[in-house]
């Protein structure tokens, strides 16, 4: 379980981008004089991923996560830095390296639109030289796990998005690669399909020690799937730790949800940091570094007609929003974090 499959050191990518000005005449001008600006998309990334891990990579749009993934998968040359994946340098050994790789892009299809998925599977079988028996056994297993027994014989254009995504997933793992990149694997899917796909990924990781790298904007994917999460923002890693540590990120801040038996005057709650309030309920945030949680709760129970109290961590959405909007590095647990 401790074997490291991916080792990234000082990875950087700088793009030269043509600066285009507005207006019709300047379009002509730009034919003669070209203004370039340098975009530092990835500014020095270091990370390690273990075999069999399901790693979530998240970050706001334009943070550099796709650029990182492209370099890890070998389709983009970096400006600087080294990457070692199973002994390969992805962009240099691309043709040999991709044999050991599975990919799924939620927004791009690799299935033939006019043909049934089975045809694509058969092509993949030839591409990766999968032996006939293995191919049959795997396909049978995947068919029952994903419930796609019938649909793989229907033209792709007649399938629903969820059915198609399941087939895309089969395309990514049919050759049982040790490493799979999943880019937004559950985008646009209903809750049941999402659940099926997550279960499938978890099972692959358990049974075959397959390493998955998942990029997503769906926090439920991260919460239900990933062992570890890497957050990339503005081209650098701002968080890289286990899922539990992300959810207890603001360990010194709690949210207390209180339900009342009868309406409470708003003025009376002024001394607390109210996050939201309704007619018969209120949510307040308590900084446990400043106040004693026990004391505050007792005080509330004492002063108000309380029906129910719920003490929770800061929701993960809030944590991530906070990390996205702050620049400082917050890698590691227990570090003091500037809360603003």
């Amino acid at each position: 379980m401790d074997e490291i499959i991916i080792k990234v050191q000082g990875l950087r990518k700088t793009f030269k981008k043509l600066r285009k000005k507005e207006g019709f005449l300047s379009s002509f001008r730009s034919l003669l004089i070209r203004d370039f600006e340098r975009i530092h998309s990835v500014k020095g990334i270091d990370m390690e991923i273990r075999k069999g891990e399901i790693r979530g990579i998240i970050g706001p749009n334009g943070a550099g996560k796709s650029t990182t993934i492209k370099m890890l998968s070998g389709i983009l040359f970096p400006t600087e830095g080294t990457v070692d994946v199973m002994g390969f340098t992805p962009w240099l050994d691309r043709e040999r390296y991709v044999r050991h790789l599975g990919v799924l892009f939620g927004q791009k299809s690799q299935l033939w639109w006019d043909l049934p998925p089975i045809d694509t599977f058969l092509l993949i079988k030839e591409m990766y030289r999968i032996p006939e028996e293995d191919f049959k056994a795997r396909l049978n297993r995947f068919k029952s796990m994903l419930q796609i027994e019938r649909i793989i014989y229907q033209p792709v254009r007649t399938l629903s998005l969820g059915e198609r995504m399941k087939c895309e997933l089969v395309c990514a793992v049919l050759h049982e690669p040790p490493l799979v990149f999943l880019d937004e694997p559950t985008i646009g899917l209903d809750i049941v399909s999402k659940e099926t796909i997550r279960e499938f990924i978890k099972q692959m990781s358990r049974d075959k020690q397959t390493t998955f790298i998942v990029t997503t904007h769906d926090l439920a994917d991260i919460e239900n799937l990933c062992d570890r999460v890497t957050i990339i923002n503005k081209g650098t890693i701002v968080f890289d730790d286990s899922m539990e540590r992300l959810s207890s990120y603001f360990s010194n801040r709690k949210v207390v949800e209180i339900k009342f038996t009868q309406p409470v005057e708003e003025k009376l709650l002024d001394s607390y940091k109210v996050i939201s309030s309704g007619a018969m309920s209120v949510s307040i945030e308590i900084d446990t570094g400043e106040f004693d949680l026990k004391k505050v709760i007792f005080e509330i129970l004492d002063r108000f007609p309380v029906l129910d109290v719920n003490i929770m961590n800061i929701p993960i959405e809030e944590v991530i929003k906070h990390i996205y909007s702050h620049e400082e590095k917050v890698v590691g647990y227990g570090e003091k974090v500037g809360v603003g």
Partner: peptide, 9 residues
């Protein structure tokens, strides 16, 4: 789509 093409052996 080139990305997808390059990721196949």
């Amino acid at each position: 789509e080139l990305g997808l093409r390059l990721l196949r052996p």
